[in-house]
Amino acid sequence: MKQTKIQIRDLTLFYGEKMALNSISMDISEKEVTAFIGPSGCGKSTFLRTLNRMNDLIPHVKITGEVLVDSVYIYDKQIDVVNLRKKVGMVFQKSNPFTKSIYENVAYGPRINGLNNRKKLDEIVETSLQKAFIWEEVKDRLHDSAMGLSGGQQQRMCIARALAVNPEIILMDEPASALDPISTAKIEELIFELKKNYTIVIVTHNMQQAARVSDITAFFYLGELIEHGKTKKIFTTPDKKQTEDYITGRFG
């Protein structure tokens, strides 16, 4: 029985007057892949961003309810957001490499943690790039600009960059939506491998991807969590009609 990594209780989020998330409650277990699916604008990305407090950056956001990671209330006033984000990493929809070299991109996280030893950094960069299945492709041009990589390579590099800070949880916001099928397949393969060591939460509007990659699926609609459970069940015998309608493509 897997341990619970993240617990969410009655999470409600307002953008000013508008309610974006309505009383979400769920548990996320460690070292497996949980997928959030649902039509555009239903709050999946917003919900994902509450898990590493990236919504703090947006003004006029109000959050009630509780989010616990390893039984720690992360919205507690005493919590250091910066450290939280080192433990809960994030990969964005559109890859966002820094305008630096590949090496410096991946080394960014360790560097801001105070690690400046060249050898150690070399090690971490290599390990992270290997874990992201991109080492072979870039090992000879580590000091070239990251902007010269293809879209798929950039995204895998961003994953490596996130891995370099040694997180326990990785949040992925539609990581393959901007990529071609081959790159997408590579990333899915990567996720499969990563889940052995990391807890992964992935937002995707591609249902087939969710079915392929995740262990648990949660279906969102208009800011509410409609249904959530084992992927196999959700995609074959969902409990709620809304879920079934979405899965079978009656609306999207």
Binding site: K86, G89, F92, K94, N96, F98, I112, R161
Partner: peptide, 22 residues
């Protein structure tokens, strides 16, 4: 771009570190 700042913050960068390095 905002995305670059977000990337830095998501990696555990502080505000000043983001300003200084990015």
């Amino acid at each position: 771009p905002r995305e670059m700042r977000e990337a830095s913050l998501a990696l555990g960068g502080t505000k000043w570190e983001t300003i200084r390095r990015i």
